[in-house]
């Protein structure tokens, strides 16, 4: 377990992980409501089939929101300086997502002590869906 303290943290330390419920069609409908993203690729089976895709799939930003939740469970949100994601695979309905993160660098940025974190959102089989990083300022 890692406290969010600059001096105590070492490169390689992991932050507390987050495991989600399986992503359901209801999750996608709720995320469409909450995010305002009603793209039919995430909601409309008829539409996706017409595009040659077998089934609706999760919004990439849902996974990023889960990674964000992992961060804000660890530090207050005001400590997050930057947060970026590359979407590397599609999340299918039924998959449970596992968010993990570790310290990869201790740095000073804009006069503040910060850590750079490498974050991953993967399914339970370990297939990475999103690879992310974040810079967090710590006391």
């Amino acid at each position: 377990m890692t406290t969010a303290n600059f001096d105590a943290l070492k490169v390689g330390d992991e932050i507390p992980s987050l495991i989600t419920e399986p992503v359901s069609r209801l999750t996608l409908a709720l995320y469409a409501t909450g995010s305002g993203d009603h793209h039919p690729l995430h909601l409309d089976q008829d539409y996706v089939r017409s595009k040659g895709i077998p089934d609706v799939f999760a919004h990439g930003m849902l996974g990023m929101a889960y990674l964000g939740r992992m961060l804000t469970q660890w530090v207050p949100q005001e400590a997050i300086r930057s947060f970026g994601v590359r979407f590397t695979a599609i999340t299918q309905v039924g998959e449970r997502l596992v968010c993990t993160g570790k310290v990869v660098e201790k740095l000073e940025q804009g006069g503040e002590k910060c850590v750079r974190l490498e974050l991953t959102c993967a399914n339970e089989q370990g297939e990475a869906k999103h690879k992310a990083d974040a810079v967090v300022a710590l006391a």
Binding site: S35, G36, R81, F83, G84, V85, R86, F87
Partner: peptide
């Protein structure tokens, strides 16, 4: 994205929004 046509800029370029995927996203706060 909170506007009537959030990907209007892609439509202006002639892109098919059914073939769109989100590649990367980042924020500086």
């Amino acid at each position: 994205m909170d506007k009537e046509h959030p990907f209007d800029y892609l439509e202006t370029m002639g892109c098919d929004l059914g073939k769109m995927l989100h590649g990367e996203q980042s924020f500086v706060y």
